[in-house]
Write a protein that binds this DNA or RNA. Structure first.
Length: 269
DNA sequence: ATCTACTCCTGATTGC
DNA sequence: TGCAATCAGGAGTAGA
């Protein structure tokens, strides 16, 4: 499920674990996208978290000598529990017991992952990631340069984490809608001016979603850990046959690269 | 090197 | 109501 804003929201919610000591790690079910390292407990137990941060859609716990890299995949969540709370939920995979509270990794579809590394920048999941969309590295010039040599459609391009990270299927449609760019356009044909719109709107859409995500933090991490992701005001995604907010044409749904794309044929071209 | 199709999995929703 | 088909917010990998 989670794209950058949802991961960022999760990250902020678990900042309370920063500087805490990890007492123990229990893997209830190691079967995720990759099997969880069976030595995770031996490697991390007793160590202190020096920093918790996000890179792309990954949440990284730095323990100084090791880093814990977590990806939520499509359906993963982190749930905060008190140390004396002992209930389980279906699909709880990992339990990280810290000195104050516990953190539970739950993932029904198992597309997520948990890795341990001693140099995360060189880790195969991290090494070839593109720039952060909210950083100045993701600029008009960067995008225009990168886009010129590409030969795929623009929606697929911005979802490719090698080009820019954090943008998934929902926000890709939203960003292109806001930029008046048809998602089917081949990247080569995108103008520099449009690159400017895409970079600017990527930042705006993601920032707005993070802002809204913050307000749902409490519900998201309530004791019952209510799943349901919030949905921000979406202009295009999941609005098939509803009126375009700009031109009143009906929003179209098509399939691109096996994923649903929503857009307005009239004002995105 | 780059692009596309396929794949991993469970659960919610849709259709007959 | 029941059961099968379809779809879901990700992304590595094989093969073209």
């Amino acid at each position: 499920m989670p794209e950058l804003p949802e991961v960022e929201t999760t990250l902020r919610a678990i900042q309370s674990f920063d500087q805490d000591t990890l007492d123990s790690v229990t893997i209830h079910n190691p079967s995720l996208r990759w099997l969880v390292d069976p030595e995770i407990h031996q490697k991390l137990a007793g160590k202190k978290v020096t920093q918790i941060f996000r890179r792309a859609k990954y949440i990284i716990f730095d323990f100084a000598d090791y880093q814990l890299i977590i990806h939520l995949g499509m359906s993963g969540t982190l749930r905060i529990m008190g140390k004396n709370e002992n209930y389980f939920k279906k699909h709880d995979h990992a339990e990280l017991v810290f000195n104050k509270n516990k953190l539970i990794y739950n993932d029904p579809r198992r597309f997520g992952s948990i890795h341990i590394t001693d140099s995360y920048l060189e880790h195969f999941l991290i090494a070839s990631l593109g720039p952060e969309p909210l950083s100045s590295d993701f600029s008009t010039n960067y995008l225009f340069k990168k886009i010129k040599n590409s030969n795929t459609n623009i929606k697929n391009f911005i979802m490719n984490q090698k080009n820019v990270v954090g943008i998934g299927n929902i926000y890709a449609s939203e960003i292109l809608f806001k930029s008046y760019v048809d998602p089917r356009r081949i990247t080569k044909t995108i103008t520099k001016k449009e690159c400017g719109l895409i970079t600017k709107n990527s930042k705006e859409v993601l920032k707005e979603a993070i802002k809204v995500g913050g307000t749902t933090l409490k519900d998201f991490f309530s004791a019952e850990g209510s799943a349901g992701y919030f949905k921000i005001q979406l202009a295009a995604y999941d609005r098939e046959n509803e009126e375009c907010t700009r031109c009143k044409n009906l929003i179209n749904k098509i399939t691109q690269n096996q994923r649903a794309t929503y857009f307005c044929k009239v004002c995105q071209n």
